[in-house]
Amino acid sequence: MKVSVKLFARASELAGTNQLELQIPERSTIAGLRAEMLRSCPELSPLMESLHIAVGSEYASDDCYIEPDSEVACFPPVSGG
């Protein structure tokens, strides 16, 4: 299935875009998504271990499954305030 991943801050800067369009198998986990992100956008590798993935505006752990049409985002540690 197709998944769009919104990128923010340094992740967006490194990737050179604010959205990645990826093709992943049905029933992929967040861990699977991370692997595909690294394959298609190796520029993110310096950050990958610290990157958070959010699905539907909630933090998602690596064993979560991604449902079709979910809103997915990827970003480094937050620094608001």
Partner: peptide
Amino acid sequence: EWVHPGSAESSSAVPPG
């Protein structure tokens, strides 16, 4: 410099605050 506390990339990372 984007501030990303604890990120693997920046050894000069600025702590939050």
